[in-house]
Simulated scan of single mutants.
Amino acid sequence: MIEVKNLVKVYSTKKNKVIGVDNVSLTIKNGEIFGIVGYSGAGKSTLLRCLNLLERPTSGQVIIDGVDLTTLNKKELRQARLKIGMIFQHFHLVSSKTVFENVAFALKAAKKSKDEIEKRVNELLEMVGLSDKRDAYPSQLSGGQKQRVGIARALANEPTVLLCDEATSALDPSTTKSILALLKKINRELGITIVLITHEMEVVKDICDRIAVMQDGKVIELGTVYDIFTNPKEELTKSFINSVLQFDLPDHLLKKRTGTIVKIQFKGEIAEEAIVSDMLQTFKVKGNILHGKIEYIQDMPLGIFVMELTGDPDEIQRAIDYISLRTNGLEVIASAA
């Protein structure tokens, strides 16, 4: 388990002080994939680098598996870091070394024997799907392949924690999905705790169990991915969600409508029930679906529909009350003229 307690990181310059991380406290459970989300300058990468003390906190504690890293001497910290792997946005591979040699580097630093290194590197290259690239150089690899080498290298010393700093930001969408699938496989099969920094909510939706949203060095919202997506509290979080689940209709389309426009959110199992169909059969209203989509987040459905209701105003209100009661997620966008 990772515990961050009252963590502060301040950068001092000649003219002023800049707060990178501002009194952050959070707990990351063993075996979960935890996302830290925020725009550039929010403090998320600084927080991540504080977790293995690549950035030493100004104050506060970083406790991993019961050990406060901030209290360790240099030798003890080097040993602790062997169990904390890290992968980067730009791979950081040694261009003059082969794939095998890049992965073996961490094992050599840990003073493993030649036979141990040979066996472990071969296992890792098979795990990340690069056995056939063992003798290739980074210049001969695609971006996705380079990141797979980075992942293999980070796993070399069998870490319990894997830190990912914008690990997919330099990749195209298709390659991103394959890397996320690999990280999820590693998490599920090896039980490794993954902490993932990103500004892309699509990445969060695909892989994370819980997320923290950061702004100005602070964590402003924290929760499970499903709860954050279905009920965001902060405006920044809502803007992130809208980048993935965009359901707003253009103004010119709304102006053409004469009925009542409603946006309905269906959470969990309710998303798979025939609530709209039941409503149309129960009340004397007509329904025209203008936009709709069902997303699956952590294998749980989230449905959002925008529809126009026409008919007697009293019947429309009864229909709205019926759906509101069944879904607890209805918003009237425009009332009937």
Rank of each mutant, 00 (worst) to 15 (best):
I2L: 13
E3R: 10
V10W: 14
V18M: 12
D22P: 10
V24W: 08
L26D: 02
T27G: 07
N30V: 07
S40E: 08
G43N: 00
L54I: 08
T58V: 12
I64P: 12
G66N: 11
L69G: 09
T71D: 14
T71W: 09
T71Y: 06
N73R: 12
K75H: 15
R78Q: 14
A80K: 06
I84P: 00
M86P: 03
Q89S: 05
Q89E: 02
V94C: 09
A104K: 04
A109W: 05
S113T: 14
S113V: 05
D115Q: 07
D115Y: 00
I117E: 11
R120W: 12
G129Q: 01
Y137R: 00
G143F: 15
I151M: 06
N157I: 13
E158I: 14
T160W: 05
L162P: 07
L162Q: 06
C164R: 01
D172C: 09
P173N: 09
S178F: 13
A181V: 01
L182G: 07
N187A: 00
R188W: 00
L190C: 02
I197L: 05
T198H: 11
V213R: 00
M214Y: 10
Q215H: 11
Q215E: 03
D216N: 15
G217C: 10
L222M: 13
L222D: 10
T230K: 01
N231A: 13
N231G: 12
E234P: 08
K238M: 13
D248H: 14
D248A: 14
D251C: 07
D251G: 14
H252S: 15
K255P: 00
G259T: 05
I264A: 07
F266G: 02
K267Y: 01
I270G: 07
E273A: 10
E273M: 11
A274N: 08
V276R: 05
T282D: 12
K284N: 15
V285Y: 04
I297G: 05
D299W: 01
M300Y: 03
V306W: 13
E308T: 02
I316Q: 05
I316F: 01
A319R: 02
D321E: 13
Y322D: 11
I323W: 00
R326P: 03
